[in-house]
Computed example of a mutant assay.
Amino acid sequence: MSNVLTFEPSRPVVLLPYQAEWADEFTATARRLQALVGAALLRVDHIGSTAVPGLVAKDVIDVQLTVVDLEHVLELTQPLTQAGFRLRADFDYDVFHDLPVHSPELRKCYLREPVGERRLHLHVREAGRFNTRYALLFRDYLRANSAACQEYGLLKRRAAAIFPNSIAGYLYLKEPVFHLLYQAAALWADQVGWQLEEPSTS
């Protein structure tokens, strides 16, 4: 019996050098989302690797939509689904080892771009929750720490080289790094007095 990890093939894992146009694409997307949803959005933020200058990334714009709560999520997401954005059924939950699998601190809704449009991941999360804060802390820590950014980029390239045709395998190698980086980012946040910046579309 083999103990070698295997994962089902998926789309190829393609990493690109940082693209300056990612920031502009986010800005256009944020304005579109704000026009669709309006005052229900507390803030719209560019998150994930495409939000970190100098970091290699898949060509996917990750956007965090912060709302007061998710109890009326269908009302919040209806304007988006009417515009063609695709909502995954029920709630999703992010993964963090120190929290229960279905903790409210990890709950979100997830949408994809309308069919035929550029790849987007929309993460609708509640204000004040762990996952909402972590996405922004992770981004800001990597923006501020070039050494951590470079090492994380190296890990991503190696993971893509090991699992060039499996997103699941690529993410399997990356997941523990998120938890390690959180420890470093939390210390950094305390040291520099990091707080959430004012909402922005840039």
Rank of each mutant, 00 (worst) to 15 (best):
L122A: 05
I61G: 09
R158I: 15
D59A: 05
R129G: 00
F85K: 02
K58Q: 10
G153Q: 11
A159H: 09
A89C: 04
G153M: 10
T66I: 02
N165W: 04
P104G: 14
E75I: 00
R88V: 11
H97D: 08
D90C: 04
V101F: 06
S146D: 14
E175A: 13
R112Q: 11
Q150W: 12
L80M: 01
L80A: 00
D90S: 04
R119S: 12
A161Y: 11
E105M: 08
Q82N: 12
T132D: 09
D140C: 03
E175N: 08
A161D: 15
V73C: 14
P164A: 00
N145C: 15
L122H: 12
T66M: 05
T81S: 12
R143W: 05
T132S: 15
P114H: 05
P164Y: 06
H121S: 12
V95P: 06
V67P: 11
G128P: 13
N131S: 13
A57D: 02
H97P: 15
L173P: 15
L155E: 14
H121A: 11
L155I: 07
V68A: 06
I61R: 03
A83K: 08
D92V: 06
A168G: 09
L87C: 06
A144L: 01
A147Y: 02
R139S: 04
P104R: 13
K174V: 10
L136I: 05
K156G: 07
N131W: 10
D98K: 10
E75P: 08
G54C: 01
L99V: 04
Y152Q: 05
D98M: 08
V68R: 13
S166A: 02
